Computed example of a mutant assay.
Amino acid sequence: MRLLLGIGGSDDSWHALTQTAERAAEAGDSLTVAILDNPDTEMSPDEIESKVERTLSEYDLEPDIRHLEGDPGAMLVEEGDGGEYDQIVIGGGERSPMGKIRVGQVAEFVVLNAETSVTLVR
């Protein structure tokens, strides 16, 4: 399976990275990591890329890493729907105190607009 993982540097994106790396290593999936613009993180794109590389080396994965500039949701959908991928993976979502799922703005955009299957890791 060809996976596209969107990473913006948030805590949920790191959780999604770990979950996706475990699955890709176990299943032999092809993994591409898209580093997204995220104004809510203090990490630079280069710092995010370094952390991605360190994490994936623990799973003996050497993914294709791409930097997507612009609106993160739109860019991830555009990249994912380009025909190369079987699935888009993105972190996001948490439970509210009432037990409802709250999905981040980027994750919501991707889930609602992608033609490619989307897995939301929470």
Rank of each mutant, 00 (worst) to 15 (best):
M98R: 11
V106M: 02
T119F: 13
L120V: 03
V103L: 13
M98Q: 08
R54C: 12
A25N: 05
E58H: 12
R102P: 00
M98G: 05
G73V: 03
S13Y: 02
L3S: 07
W14E: 12
E84F: 07
D81H: 01
A25S: 15
G73Y: 00
Q87C: 14
D29Y: 06
E84G: 15
L31F: 03
N38T: 04
T55S: 15
W14V: 10
D37P: 02
L112A: 12
F109K: 08
L112W: 04
E62I: 02
D71V: 04
A24T: 06
D29E: 11
R95W: 01
M1P: 03
E62F: 12
L120G: 00
V52W: 11
R95K: 09
R95G: 08
A24N: 03
P45C: 04
D60C: 05
E78A: 15
E22D: 12
G70E: 07
G6R: 01
M43K: 11
M43D: 12
G80Q: 05
A107D: 01
M75V: 08
L68D: 04
S50C: 09
N113C: 02
E69Q: 12
D12W: 09
E115D: 12
R66E: 11
R102K: 08
D60P: 02
G70W: 06
T32F: 02
G8R: 04
I88P: 05
R2N: 14
D40T: 13
E62N: 14
L5G: 00
E47M: 11
G104N: 09
L112D: 11
A34H: 05
Y59D: 06
G83Q: 13
T41A: 09
L36I: 03
N38G: 13
V110N: 04
S30W: 00
T55P: 13
V111Q: 06
R54E: 15
